[in-house]
Design a protein around this nucleic acid. Structure first.
Lengths: 241, 241
DNA sequence: TTTCTATTGTATAAAAAATATACATTAAAT
DNA sequence: ATTTAATGTATATTTTTTATACAATAGAAA
């Protein structure tokens, strides 16, 4: 399942903050590692010697969560000298679950390698919680979406990473929404507004949101959408090519 | 002068984009390496195993330029798989100058190490070109300030790093100006405006700049400054404690 | 002392952007 | 045809940004 650890760059890791949106709720994807006591970590992993870091982030996300073809954005490097996995590794000594490597193959060199200091490059993504169906089973036995306010205490600085990633997501939403591939091909203005309201955790006035969104100049209006509801049908929009 | 290379983290480097401001001009600090043909590189170096990356950036900057106690801001990671020093190293084979290591000590293992793929964490700073006096001689024989439009072609992606750093600097100027320690303890509004105009490369209306700057709420007004000029004396300001 | 000049502080007007409010439109059920 | 709920759009209000005007003043010159 895994490459031998010699192919990875030492002391370097990538962690992914995956925001999931669906139906006016925003959550974070957190794999839970089952040890003596439960341990939560962001989906993370290591960079191969011959791999772009952006590519590595995509691969890692796929390996740990099954999510593929996700648009990831680099947001911050976390590089304190004392940034170490040691606590996590200790817990794994008394566990039958895999972490980054197959536990059967976890020999002394690998353990040493893992216990060193790691500099982590943080990536974030925003995906549709329901549309994104893992194409392969994630290696982690348990993985779940957590609302921000229910986020478990994760290892190391992972909770801080989420906080920082959310700041950046909010700043970049206007310019990155298209890239996130969050909305369907065509969508109503209401759907866009719900995304914004959820991510910013605040309400916007409908009429003003509409004109602000259109003033960005990235949407084009299509035909109307007749849903069968007994009220005026909304227009559909899509991102300009 | 240098630590043995074994103390550095493999495949990881830091590059610094140092913006220098003085008297309405903005420049970039670029060490020139003297080989058969000239080579320019941003001041860069490597991270020790037991060192915070922020600390490493400060140390590297000091080693390569003599600049100490500079406020550095991380702005981007550059991590293409083909990001290699090889061209630079080749040039150094026919040169008597040091690069990252003392050339006398450049044995085969070090050369191999240096020729690998490097992921670089970009930092930038904004300093007063004239106030900042190197406390120690930089190791590079030649180092100079270049205006953006005169920037030489540097190695690898260093020119792109400057472009990206300038984007981030402009975005962050409002909130980071204090940290840059660019202005003297007390200063006039005109001095602030000159900094802004230079960095953004555009003029601002004086009266509007004044009210915008004050509306940030970070300045406090002190006494007037009598310079001997035959016109109304400006107030002095300083950053609120 | 008075006048003049260059620069600064500040007020105000004009324009633009953001926000609030109102109202007409309409798809489908009744 | 009437009603209802959501939508499109117009307009008013407020706030922010930008432009313009003008008074204040430190020192030089008259």
């Amino acid at each position: 399942m895994f490459e031998p650890f010699e192919n990875y760059l030492d002391h370097l890791s990538i962690d992914c903050v995956i925001f999931g949106y669906h139906n006016r709720t925003l959550k974070i994807l957190v794999p839970q590692l089952k040890t003596e006591s439960d341990i939560w970590t962001l989906p993370g992993g290591f960079i191969k010697e011959d791999e772009d870091i952006d590519q590595a982030a995509k691969r890692i996300l796929a390996e740990r969560t099954g999510l593929e073809d996700i648009y990831l954005e680099q947001f911050r490097v976390f590089g304190k000298a004392n940034r170490k996995n040691s606590m996590v590794l200790d817990a794994f000594e008394n566990s039958e679950q895999d972490l980054y490597f197959d536990k059967q193959l976890m020999d002394e060199p690998i353990r040493n390698w893992l216990s060193g200091r790691f500099i982590s490059i943080g990536y974030y993504a925003l995906v549709d919680m329901d549309k994104v169906v893992p194409k392969r089973m994630p290696i982690d036995k348990k993985i779940a979406w957590y609302a921000l306010e229910d986020l478990p205490r994760m290892i190391m600085d992972h909770n801080q990473q989420v906080t920082k990633a959310l700041d950046v997501l909010r700043e970049q939403l206007d310019s990155k929404l298209l890239g996130f591939n969050l909305l369907p091909d065509t969508f109503t203005m209401k759907e866009v507004q719900e995304v914004y309201e959820t991510i910013h955790d605040q309400k916007f006035t409908r009429s003003n949101f509409q004109s602000k969104m259109l003033s960005l100049g990235v949407l084009e209006r299509l035909e109307k959408k007749y849903t069968g509801a007994s009220n005026r049908a909304p227009y559909l929009y899509r991102f300009k090519k």
